[in-house]
Amino acid sequence: MRRIWILVVSLTVLSGLLLAADYPRKSVTIICPWGAGGGTDRLARFLADELSKKLGQPFVVVNRTGGGGATGHSAGAYAAPDGYTLTVVTLEIATMHWMGLTDLTFDAFEYIAQVNEDAAGVIVRANSPWKSLKDLLDSIKANPGKYLFSGTAAGGIWDLARIGMLDAAGIPVDAVTWIPTTGAAQGLVELLGGHVDVVTCSLAEAISQLQSGQVRALAIMADERDPRFPDVPTLKEQGINWSAGTWRGIAVPKKTPPEIKAVLEKAVLEIANSDSFKNFMNTNGFGIKIRNGAQFYEFVKQQDQDWKHVLQLGGYAK
């Protein structure tokens, strides 16, 4: 009996090694939890192309949308941990489970690399009286309950960024009202039409309106200024210790062989440091932020705790 066990164990180890040695041997699936044409989809397809060139096997993007990202992330996390299913993980992995939308947590993945981060901005109409963030915050303090903020659905990332900012500035989070929309684009239309006062969304999402001078950014919720918008000050410069934004990276299911993870991490990091990647990110308006597997894991772990706090403040935590 024991011999059989040894045989079985050694066979599995051996086959694992064999699998890893010449990885990849067949086409690899990249799960994208968001729809065709969206930002995550474009990023996924770019990475898929580059990975196919690098590793010599087709990498195929599969859109598994639904559940505000829950469907795709679950499909990716519960796939066979053989390195033939990768997932483009997005920020939602750190917020969904606190809202009671799924049982999946960030721990269901092992992380390969992060490639993108887009910080939230504070955006007002060009003709609004507020010239700086301080003006805006003073107005909010003086007239609690008067102003309308918008940018995404209730409990979405830009809503949470807004909650975190107000909290860090010492203002009660219900001093402004959140107007839920289906996304940043709709929020910006509401802003242009004069139906809301402030939109918090990433500067990249508002780039065409910013460049045409219809709207103005008062601040960016990042640690450093964005090189594309050098005039927009960070919250930290104004004494508010808060930064928030979306991010994207590649992850694999837990228990994926370390050899395969190493192959993927090396390839993804090489791509992320290439010129063609920089070009791609620039034309699409994405911010670049590169973290390797270990750093990415620590980052996600930290995010998970940060968002828990904010979700509780907003009354979204279950």
């Binding site: 065709a36 034309t283 699409n284």
Partner: peptide, 12 residues
């Protein structure tokens, strides 16, 4: 719209 961004077009 996503494709237009991919081409570096900024609808607006």
């Amino acid at each position: 719209l996503g494709a237009m961004l991919m081409y570096g077009l900024r609808p607006g």
